[in-house]
Amino acid sequence: MTLPLFLELLVGGLVVGGLYALMAFSFSLILATTHVLNVAHGVFMVLGAAASTLLVRHLGLGVVPAFGLVAAGFLLVGMIFEAVLLKPMAGRASGEVLVSSILVTFGLALALEAMLGFYWARHVEPQPIFALHPRISSFALGDVVVSGPRATVLGIVAVVVGVLHLLLTRTRIGKEARAVAQNLAGALVIGLNPRRVSRAVLTIGIAAAALSGGLFVMAIPLNPFEGLRLTMIAFTVSAAGGVGNLPGALAAGIALGLAEVFTGFWAGPIWSPMMSLLVLFAVLLLRPAAILTGQGR
């Protein structure tokens, strides 16, 4: 393998990994603070991708305003999601929430996925593919040509991760979310309102998922039925990085992104999705304690 090729794969892996980290982090923050295992997380990504595609390709918006609209719209979706689906579970023991949230969000994922595929095929295009092709020129770093859209994705991911980090470390609600994730009993004793926290986390988490979906299709096209696979990746990365842990998700996401890209190069692209599932099994089997307790800091 030549050095430029290696570097190109490296950049590709970084882009994929950054996206994985972003989607995994919102997934794992929701899991850590509310004990909701959101099976529909990847579907929200796909919905974000579809909405971005619609706004850019069919309404002629620029990529950045489209992302802004998607993020804002999905804040609302997240709020509704929390109110309709999760409010009824408030007050149940965390183990029960975990299990019933799987069934509820699994049902939701299938329903949303089916409707998206159905209507898109009917009204937009017969073979639904979500993709954005903004005209951003590529540039050369030494011998390596970096694609403009990919560099943009990487840049936006870095900004969003930075914003999430600031939200968590600098704002009251962010600190409350971390407190709830670290020690729910302690958070309750000092009078934090867990509903307030779960509302905030789910609202922001769903918006972040949708936004990462929009970013995703700037690098890799998606079809309507890839949501559950993306959820599995989000689960894998957050389990490997430690549930609720931003730096951990970043490291694990990038590692997985690189692993997939290099697997795709050596074994053929059809094998890269398999890589993430194999890593998932490895993580489930090797780090059950980190997943179960969320003490993966």
């Binding site: 509820v104 699994f106 049902g107 994922a109 299938l110 329903a111 089916a114 409707m115 159905f118």
Partner: peptide, 12 residues
């Protein structure tokens, strides 16, 4: 609506 959406809805 497509059938899977109904089943998903039933599960929810």
């Amino acid at each position: 609506v497509p059938a899977p959406a109904i089943y998903g809805g039933i599960l929810v």
